[in-house]
Write a protein that binds this DNA or RNA. Structure first.
Lengths: 199, 199
DNA sequence: GTCTCGTTGACACTGAGTGACAGCAGGTCA
DNA sequence: TGACCTGCTGTCACTCAGTGTCAACGAGAC
């Protein structure tokens, strides 16, 4: 490692931020699908090839944070005592991370774009699937004493389904939130979503 | 319409079936990602361009049925009296369609391939999102008297989340089912999944 | 003043997906 | 029979995402 870590990290971070800024401007102006990577690269003053050294795909510019957020949710979840039941623990962990995410206005723009762009929506769900694998182990431990979950496959599916449902609730809440221009609070929507699922 | 409908439909159906057959053979042999559309077209004796006249994407060869199945689930759901509560109605509708799907062996091959191919997984989730829009109206009617669902946004998110969770349960059950080589029955897994979600 | 290492740009390539156009069946009508 | 229409097909050309390769370059290390 030739360069001091802090400096390097800072310039690398600056490049990420700059590319993201320029790209989001183009996305919001022309739409996501009609913006090509060549346009982003030109606007950011880098080569097309270099763009792919920062982001694996065009979608990652918009959704890159989701991967990091997944790890934050996991960490938050791990910090909650195992005595707290699964749904409540997941809600607490999700909200802890929700509090860290940027301002509502930017979030709303991203969310709106996401829910009206199929490829973005798909990629976001893929990222949420990755959350699943991060959160399931903890939830499985919380379900340990569940009488239903006797054999292996049942224990697996129980935790998998619970986490998947929680994420589905978050997704549904996000969709309604974006569709309604952010009018009801995301947490309120999530709570209502979970309530209806648990009958 | 120059040709008699039946004949045309039959030859068109035969073409679909033949392309699908040939493609699945290649997929299972080489893997989905490593099979190009040129290979499929050549093996099926058609041009690359004609392939796209039958299937919009490579993924559609594997997942094309999901679109049709979604409509079947909706029809089954509509046929169930509104007095049946949402979760029970969804389960009944899903199982009615599950009974129509082909043999377990083929299903298992498809499911296994799907759960280990990211682009297929993503596309399958996209198709399931389409189910959502088909099923939500009916579920919203079933939730009509729900005291929680007073205003518009809450009613929306309640039905959305419930349907999304049911589909998430189906997906989780399918994943475990495929991972375990189809050993526990899919319905059993789905039931366990729903049980754990509803605490 | 080299040497090395990580970043970058340039170039070429694969592969998915689309648009345009011409040709070729088949069936219709005069 | 011959002049049509209509729907399917192949060919060609194109855009765009994404990947591999390689040479150049800049900045610390020795």
């Amino acid at each position: 490692m030739g360069i001091e870590d802090g400096l390097w990290t800072r310039s690398r971070g600056a490049a990420y931020a700059e590319i993201t800024r320029v790209a989001m401007e183009l996305f919001l102006d022309q739409g996501f699908a009609r913006t090509t990577i060549d346009q982003i690269a030109e606007a950011a003053g880098i080569s097309r090839r270099s763009f792919f050294r920062y982001f694996g795909t065009k979608e990652d510019v918009v959704l890159g944070d989701l991967a990091v957020q997944g790890e934050l949710v996991r960490d938050a979840l791990e910090a909650i005592p195992l005595t707290v039941p699964p749904w409540e623990a997941l809600q607490e962990a999700l909200w802890k991370v929700d509090g860290l995410v940027g301002d509502d206005e930017t979030m709303l723009k991203i969310a709106t774009m996401m829910y009206e762009t199929p490829s973005l929506r798909a990629r976001s769900i893929e990222k949420h699937l990755a959350w699943q694998e991060l959160l399931v182990p903890n939830i499985r431990r919380r379900l340990g004493g569940d009488p239903h979950a006797a054999d292996g496959a049942s224990a697996e599916v129980a935790a998998d389904a619970l986490v998947a449902s929680a994420i589905a609730c978050l997704d549904a809440a996000g969709a309604v939130w974006a569709r309604n221009d952010g009018s009801p609070d995301l947490r309120t929507l999530y709570r209502r979503a979970v309530d209806s699922v648990r009958t």
